[in-house]
Amino acid sequence: MPPSGARLRVLVPVTGAFHGKVRLKRNGLVDTEGVERILSRESAQALALAKQLAAEGAELVVVHVDKGGGEEVLREALAHGADQGVLVEGAEKSESDASTRATTIAEVYKQMGPFDAVIGPARSEFAGFTGTLAALAGQLELPCLVGVSRVAVDGVGLRIAYQSLFGDYDLRVPRPSVLLVGDLEPSHPTAWGIHDAHRVKGILRVKADNYTVQKALTKRQRIENVPQESRSLESVDGATLVRRLRSRSLIAEKGGSP
């Protein structure tokens, strides 16, 4: 439970994305030379959600586990209005997976806390970050909600708007909770924010070695080009088309919901 009367604090883990064409080199490594690393769109959405709490006076702490080009990613997050940035450096040197990233962020949470919420992106490259943040919730034993589009302080809890197939819900959830953003217009950095992020705000740098206390539980075997689709056009009749679509779970079985 956060200290009463203290300023609300929110941890916002953010991810990067490549801005430009990424190619695979002959040696199986990804060629990112000259490719800018930017804040992912989903992270900008998470910041848009977190800024709703900032409007109520919350302090936003962004954390990024750097795998190269991370400072610019973090400065971009700061430009969106975050108050403080934590850059976990050196993660690219060790093998990591979503579990180790979750452990690293959990350590940041414990050492820099207390926090009233963790607000993060719900997707990222390889769809990995949803898993990372859910794993974080699992490690910290916190409630975890996915698809949040609005958040506000509500007494000792948080009031959130939550999107699901069943509709939009207003919920009251405890503090702290892990909230993964839903479909929300991403935040846009202002010129003031861009200036301050690069010339005023500092970044707290921590070594990944000190924070990564777990070995990777998945092991990367190789990176390869996506094979060109060899599938040729199949000429079919209507009934066959329907069977094909059903077999690929693209349309409903008879009587079922799609």
Binding site: I38, R75, A79, P189, I194
Partner: peptide, 13 residues
């Protein structure tokens, strides 16, 4: 600079 690149990209978006 990185700051100018960010300004340009965010202004475009």
């Amino acid at each position: 600079t990185p700051e100018q690149r960010l300004l340009k990209r965010s202004a475009r978006q």
